[in-house]
């Protein structure tokens, strides 16, 4: 029986999972949409992973979670490591590309840049206030143009003259877009213009002041959009690497971190049959009204958080 480690990355749009062996090689990986219910998504993910997992030769001894729902899923699955997505992505990516110096990542609601030198993160930045220029923005505009998101990049590539569009803010971009449609620009040119706008928004805001050096790796859901990839290559002047497993980098990193942590917390796939409940309730003991999150497994309290002071703490 050999040891295996599982990493789960629960993002706003999609949920990713990988199982790796002791040499950090992927044994299996899965990907599905979160659809606003991280708990259900993880249960489905676990069922998919279980179907492909070689349970006769391997057993899962530790789990790492990352992504915006990392804490919740970490509590439910009794994870050995709960890590932020920046660290997880950096660890996962350096495992695939040890020489990577710049990572672009554009996900469903956030975007980040990670700068590495000699395999170590030396700088990073994340988008700040809103989700302009992320996957959510592209999905919206694709719907407006009546193009499937999956086809968006291909259509953009057919353009010879991308339409200039402001991407600083989704509202501005929409009014730009409507206007350009009305003056008769083609869908191809508009799609290409949007791809370029996303890249410019990213380089001007998220990557502002960061020294972009090759090799450049591009990850996150938006990296599947070939139009954006090409626009990145045009604007930076460097080849941009997109991996087949790029969407799993965060989950992979989380699994590696779980292995490195050396904490053994065996995992059983039967958890998918266990009743899990999450409640969020207002504390009500002062005007702060902290929202206290409680996680129950078969009626018993597993974990709780969200309170600013002891008065709001919930214990079993």
């Amino acid at each position: 029986m050999k040891n295996a480690f599982m990493g789960i990355d629960v993002g706003s749009i999609s949920t990713k999972g990988t199982i790796i062996d002791e040499n950090d090689r992927i044994l299996c990986g899965e990907y599905l949409y979160t659809k606003g219910d991280p708990l259900e998504a993880v249960k489905k993910l676990l069922r998919l992973l279980e179907a492909r997992f070689d349970a006769e030769n391997y057993r899962i001894v530790a789990i790492g979670t990352t992504g915006s729902a990392r804490k919740l899923i970490g509590a439910v699955l009794n994870a050995a490591v709960i890590k932020n997505e920046i660290t997880a992505h950096a660890v996962g990516t350096t495992n695939i590309h040890p020489d990577v110096r710049t990572i672009f990542e554009i996900g469903g609601q956030d975007s980040k840049i990670i700068i590495l030198r000699n395999g170590v993160v030396t700088d990073y930045a994340m988008n700040t206030l809103c989700a302009a220029g992320t996957g959510a923005f592209i999905s919206n505009q694709a719907a407006r143009l009546d193009i499937r998101v999956e086809d968006f990049g291909g259509i953009a590539l057919r353009s010879t003259d991308p339409t200039p569009i402001a991407a600083r803010c989704t509202v501005f971009a929409e009014s730009d877009l409507v206007h350009k449609l009305q003056i008769g620009c083609s869908k191809e040119d508009i799609a290409a213009g949007l791809c370029r706008a996303i890249v410019l928004n990213y380089l001007n805001n998220v990557a502002k002041g960061k020294k972009i050096e090759p090799p450049v790796v591009f990850q996150g859901g938006v990296s599947k959009n070939i139009g954006v990839v090409k626009a990145f290559e045009n604007e930076t002047g460097y080849p941009v690497i997109v991996d087949e497993n790029g969407h799993l980098a965060g989950a992979w990193g989380a699994a590696i971190l779980a292995r490195r942590a050396g904490i053994i917390r065996p995992f059983d796939f039967r958890i998918t049959d266990v009743e899990l409940k999450i409640t969020g309730k207002s504390c009500g003991r002062c005007a702060n009204n902290c929202e206290v999150i409680c996680v129950y497994r078969e009626g018993a309290l597993v974990d709780s958080w969200g309170n600013r002071c002891e008065r709001g703490s919930v214990t079993a």
């Binding site: 932020n84 920046i86 000699n118 395999g119 993160v121 700088d123 990073y124 994340m126």
Partner: peptide, 16 residues
């Protein structure tokens, strides 16, 4: 998230 990543980064950089 940002604070933890900042801490991780500095820690790894220091260890390296």
């Amino acid at each position: 998230t940002r604070l933890e990543a900042f801490y991780d980064m500095i820690k790894m950089k220091k260890e390296n």
